[in-house]
């Protein structure tokens, strides 16, 4: 049971909404955080917590693209392919990643380190090409930069190249 040990967190979430079902998306995030994906037992547990049927949880989960219904790699690399990023070269980045990780979109590397997803617009169109790895954004990508990020992730589990609070263009002293 995932949520047994998270009672406080769950209760705080539930207290935010007058109707329990509203806590569904947040609870699914917790389930995904704890297990790496949204498992069936987790959906059933959430259904119980929110007085829903498992089918109701399931229909909601499958509507949204951010929940994984299967285990994925340690780092979920999501590269934007939409027009704005494509104009500035996202296709090349995707190709480079596919070649270097030797996987195509939707696949996970054999060592289960990386899962690649080619996705639609992630809302940083001015700083493309860009990708999201787990929670973090990496923007204005070049092939070298992606290589560096992947090395960092593999070695340190994180990379300093990730975007901080977003500001673009950066203000210049006038």
């Amino acid at each position: 049971m995932i949520f047994d040990k998270l009672k406080d967190e769950v209760n705080e979430l539930l207290s935010r909404y007058p109707v329990k079902r509203s806590a569904l998306l947040p609870l699914l995030y917790i389930a995904q955080r704890e297990e790496g994906y949204v498992s069936e037992p987790a959906m059933k547990e959430i259904a119980k917590l929110l007085s829903l049927t498992p089918s109701q949880v399931y229909e909601t989960v499958t509507f949204y693209s951010m929940y994984n219904l299967k285990p994925i790699g340690k780092f979920h690399v999501q590269v934007c392919r939409s027009l704005m990023c494509a104009l500035v070269g996202s296709d090349n980045i995707v190709e480079w990643i596919q070649k270097n990780l030797n996987i195509s979109s939707g696949q996970t590397t054999a060592d289960r380190t990386f899962t690649l997803s080619v996705v639609e617009c992630l809302g940083s169109c001015g700083t493309g090409p860009m990708m999201q790895v787990n929670d973090d954004y990496y923007e204005r990508l070049t092939e070298e930069k992606v290589g560096q990020i992947f090395d960092d992730l593999k070695q340190k589990g994180s990379s300093s190249l990730k975007s901080g609070p977003f500001m673009f263009p950066q203000p210049t002293k006038s």
């Binding site: 829903l52 049927t53 089918s55 109701q56 399931y58 229909e59 499958t62 509507f63 693209s65």
Partner: peptide
């Protein structure tokens, strides 16, 4: 009031 059916996917 059964809610057994789920439209899955998008």
């Amino acid at each position: 009031d059964v809610r057994a059916l789920a439209p899955a996917g998008r």
